[in-house]
């Protein structure tokens, strides 16, 4: 029992162990909720409150992703607390910003730069998820586990441009 507790409270698990846990969550999601996992969809539902205020007759926010507290929105709340629980279990929970050393070597120490890049990155990622029909969770993992070709097309695109972007950001240090 103490052994198990010690394993669970480790800050980092083997990616295989964490992957099996996510896989089991995937199985249970389909069997119990008859749904899939996802993250970007929940943001679309929340954004719909803003979108409808800006453009009341908008098709997308009225009919496709309505302003409602949907299953993906609640999932997001769960993901938030899951991250918290994980950090608490390893004693790493802490209010912080700029905690990543490699970030500083890549972009420097300026806080405004990090905030700007996270904001811009957030826009790009969420807009792209809209085009693709989901993000890493809702399309790559959820589609991939059902062997949907969409997931693997998305994965190929994501890796190709991700590698290229890292090359540009890191230059000689890539």
């Amino acid at each position: 029992m103490t052994w198990l507790k010690k394993q669970i409270s480790k800050e980092l698990w083997s990616p295989y162990a964490a992957g099996v846990l996510l896989g089991i969550v995937g199985i249970l999601t389909v069997i119990l909720a008859h749904a899939l996992l996802g993250a970007s969809g929940g943001f679309e539902n929340i954004a719909a409150y803003i979108g409808k205020a800006l453009s009341p007759g908008n098709t997308y926010f009225n009919y496709i992703m309505p302003a409602k507290i949907t299953y993906p929105v609640v999932l997001l709340v769960g993901i938030f607390f899951g991250g918290m629980l994980g950090a608490l279990s390893s004693g790493t929970f802490k209010f912080r910003t700029m905690d990543d050393e490699q970030w500083k070597t890549a972009y420097g120490n300026q806080k405004w730069k990090r905030w700007l890049l996270l904001f811009v990155g957030g826009i790009i990622v969420e807009f792209a998820a809209g085009i693709a029909g989901g993000c890493t969770s809702g399309l790559l993992i959820s589609g991939g586990m059902l062997l949907a070709p969409a997931a693997f097309l998305f994965m190929a695109g994501m890796f190709a441009s991700g590698i290229l972007t890292a090359l540009v950001v890191y230059g000689k240090k890539y």
Binding site: M158, A160, S161
Partner: peptide, 10 residues
């Protein structure tokens, strides 16, 4: 979508 996504993610 994947191509655009990878840029933001990286």
């Amino acid at each position: 979508g994947g191509l655009v996504f990878g840029v933001g993610m990286a």
